[in-house]
């Protein structure tokens, strides 16, 4: 197939979901982000620690809105955030004086590592990037960033996903654990 012909696309979008699915996606993501947010703002905000980062908004799309997706499974959610956080912090520590390079290296390496470990989770890219560009609050955490917010926040979101996604009769989560 020609190089430019490939750019036309060749198939169509999967079908849209029904109202029930939309409702439960909304409920799940509301509760998931609410849980992480409450813990963050009510308990941790004044301690200099953090539990909430932007990439959890992206995780919510997957683990509450596309729960069948391989990208949304616990292995990917936890593995993706933890490994990407590790890569991000390392990149900042090594190349923090060149933020553009540290950012690019963090995201690209996080994706490669997630692929290698079969833990691909798109929000992981954000988790790695935030480790570099998240400012002093994030930088002060050092490798603690991997545990908190990355691992702990993801775990809270996972807990809510297990509770909420299994309530409706024909919804189930996860597809697999490991």
């Amino acid at each position: 197939m020609g190089y430019f012909a490939k750019m036309r696309g060749h198939t169509q979008s999967p079908p849209g979901v029904g109202g029930v699915e939309i409702l439960w996606s909304w409920v799940g993501s509301f509760l998931g982000i609410a849980a992480v947010g409450l813990l963050h703002f009510k308990l941790l905000d004044h301690t200099g620690l953090m539990l909430i980062i932007g990439s959890f908004g992206a995780s919510a799309v997957l683990i509450y809105g596309a729960i069948r997706s391989p990208l949304a499974q616990p292995r990917n959610l936890m593995g993706g955030h933890v490994l990407s956080a590790l890569v991000g912090v390392t990149a900042f520590k090594l190349l923090g004086h060149q933020p553009w390079l540290a950012s690019a290296l963090a995201v690209a390496t996080a994706i490669a590592l997630m692929h290698l470990t079969k833990t691909l989770h798109p929000p992981g890219g954000a988790t790695a990037l935030i480790a570099v560009i998240g400012g002093d609050a994030v930088h002060r955490l050092g490798f603690l960033y991997v545990v908190m917010p990355a691992a702990l926040g993801a775990a809270v979101m996972l807990g809510i996903a297990l509770v909420v996604n299994n309530i409706p009769k024909n919804r189930r989560y996860p597809e697999f654990w490991l």
Partner: peptide, 22 residues
């Protein structure tokens, strides 16, 4: 046909993360 796949996907609950062609 794509149409068969789309109808099957529609009959399943939830967002199916794959294109009909795949």
């Amino acid at each position: 046909a794509d149409e068969d796949v789309l109808r099957a996907m529609k009959a399943m609950q939830g967002y199916i993360d794959i294109t009909p062609a795949d």
